[in-house]
Amino acid sequence: MNKLAILAVDDEKIILDSLLRQFEINFGTKYIFETAESAEEAFELIDELLDQGVKIILIISDYQMPGMRGDEFAFHLRDKLPGMQVILLTGQITEKLALEFKDKNIFFNVITKPWDEQDLTRIIRNILNNVE
């Protein structure tokens, strides 16, 4: 099974459900879409998927979560999932944050909540196309 997967991580279930819905509508069943409510749960999920031979190509993560923050989480995955892209979904984007990312030479796609479905879909589509 050489399926491709996209993983969404957010501590608010409502957001995860919404993302799942939008993804299904726009991308059908071509890709596997999984959700997790924390970075810790996401790590477990990633291991499961890797065991099944699934390739994770995109992570959509909330920034502010209890436990590990979204950017730290993405940072940890850089080695485990080479070629993986990250979209950071956040309720508060501040100048300080933007500068931080610039300093650390991390390139995330950053989308603020509430997000526009078309924008999100477009970004995801670009990423998926680049992979294939």
Partner: peptide, 28 residues
Amino acid sequence: IAGIAHEINTPLGAIKASNDNLIYSIKI
């Protein structure tokens, strides 16, 4: 302000997404 921003944006995100879903579900 920081607290408020985050606290309002999260439900707003959910509202927008749900509303989009509704529109799609009903129409399409």
